[in-house]
Amino acid sequence: MLDFVQQLVSGVALGCVYGLIALGFVLVYKATEVVNFAQGDLMMLGGFFAFTFIGMMGLNYWIGFAGAVAAMALFGMLAERVVVRPILGYPQFSIIMATIGLGYFLRSVSGMIWGTDDFKIDTPFSQGVLRIGSLVLADDKLSVIAATAILCTLLWLFFNKTTLGTAMRASSENMLAAYYMGIPVKRVVSIVWAISAAVATCAGVLLAPITFIHSNVGLVLGLKAFPAAVLGGFGSIPGAVVGGVLIGVIESMAGFYLAEGWKDVAPYIVLLAVLLLKPEGLFGLHVRKKV
């Protein structure tokens, strides 16, 4: 039983990281209907930024964290300006390919800059533990869970309660109509990229105590976060986090209770099963074309 709870908590913590990356996918998708395949790599870059500020320049953890988030928000805007803006309004396939290209580029360049070694960021939570009876829970994992809950709530409020959030949802439904209604679509898209890069950075930094940061971590985790977003029904903010947590828990349970090898494929098997039963994911909308 104790094992089970331990596994559950570490699964949820890992799942929260997936969920945070998935949130980035969902944000960009909700606002622009673009699937950003470079999302994981933005997370990786955010982690490296934080490592540079905290580990190499020796800044305070919180200052470094904030600095990395701000820097990545700017970087997100830059990436949007250079890669996405010129092809806004063209078929989805083009934009998806462009983000795949961006992902390749970011991976290789950060490999050139920071090398291919693993890096670790020391955090205020790295050592502490929380004891409840005989249950021992590591602070770093709990911090990830708490941070995810906060971020998710903030984003949900932002999308559903603020004017800017509504503008984003409108421009995803019909870009041209939104533009005619006076919504500055280009700026909206740019802001969304900034937010999603910032969220990705949070994921990258929170991840650091759980796994190491290296140039391929974005690809590896992105490939877990993507199913998480799909599982939740692409386009739903709570769905992304629930999907992420599900994937994380399945992975950690499969790793603990099943034979070797199941850990990596179990999430995908579950995903396929869910898609067979509910092709639009758990929280997705099923809307059919009107003829």
Binding site: A98, G101, L102, Y104, F105, L106, R107, S108, M112, T116
Partner: peptide, 14 residues
Amino acid sequence: LNGLKGAIYGIIIV
């Protein structure tokens, strides 16, 4: 440099 191939791939696609 190690990552050159990947970077070139990325640039070409974009």
